Simulated assay, not measured.
Amino acid sequence: MKTRTRIVVTTAAVLVAAGAFAGTLALAGGPPPTAGPGGTIMPRGGQRDGGCLGVPGVVDPSGTLTEVQRTALAANAEEEKLAHDLYTAFADRYDLPIFDRIAAAETTHLDAVRTLMTRYGITDPTANQAPGHFATPAVQATYDQLLAEGTGSQDAALKVGRTVETADISLLRKSLDGLTAPDAQRVYGHLLTASQHHLAAFDR
Rank of each mutant, 00 (worst) to 15 (best):
T3Q: 12
T5F: 12
R6I: 03
V8I: 12
T10S: 15
V14D: 11
V14Q: 13
L15Q: 12
G19F: 06
G23E: 04
T24L: 15
L25I: 10
L25A: 09
A26V: 07
A26H: 13
A28P: 04
G29R: 13
G29A: 14
G29M: 10
G36D: 09
P37M: 08
G38S: 09
G39D: 09
G39V: 00
G39W: 01
T40W: 07
I41T: 11
M42C: 02
R44I: 13
G45S: 07
G45I: 10
G45P: 07
Q47V: 14
Q47F: 09
R48H: 08
R48Y: 04
C52G: 14
P56I: 06
V59F: 09
D60H: 14
L65T: 01
E67R: 14
V68R: 15
V68T: 13
Q69I: 05
Q69Y: 01
A72M: 08
L73N: 01
A75K: 06
A77G: 03
E79P: 02
L82I: 01
H84M: 06
D85A: 11
Y87A: 05
A89Q: 08
F90S: 00
F90V: 08
F90H: 02
A91C: 06
A91N: 13
Y94H: 05
L96R: 11
L96V: 11
L96D: 14
P97C: 07
D100H: 09
A104Y: 00
A105S: 12
T108V: 12
H109T: 06
L110C: 10
V113K: 01
V113R: 02
R114M: 12
T115A: 15
T115Q: 13
M117I: 06
Y120N: 12
P125H: 09
T126Q: 05
T126L: 02
H133T: 13
T136V: 06
T136L: 03
P137H: 07
A138Q: 14
V139L: 05
A141S: 11
T142R: 09
Y143L: 03
D144Q: 13
D144I: 02
D144G: 07
L146N: 03
E149M: 09
E149V: 05
E149Y: 03
G150F: 02
T151E: 10
S153P: 00
S153L: 05
Q154V: 02
Q154W: 06
D155Q: 11
D155K: 03
D155M: 04
A157L: 06
K159R: 15
G161F: 01
G161E: 01
R162E: 11
T166Q: 15
I169D: 08
S170V: 11
L171Q: 14
R173I: 10
K174P: 00
S175T: 03
L176D: 06
L179F: 07
L179N: 04
T180C: 04
A181F: 04
A181Y: 05
D183S: 00
D183F: 00
D183I: 05
R186A: 14
V187M: 14
Y188L: 00
Y188N: 07
Y188K: 07
G189W: 12
H190D: 07
L191I: 06
T193K: 11
T193F: 06
T193D: 13
A194R: 08
S195H: 06
L199F: 10
A200I: 05
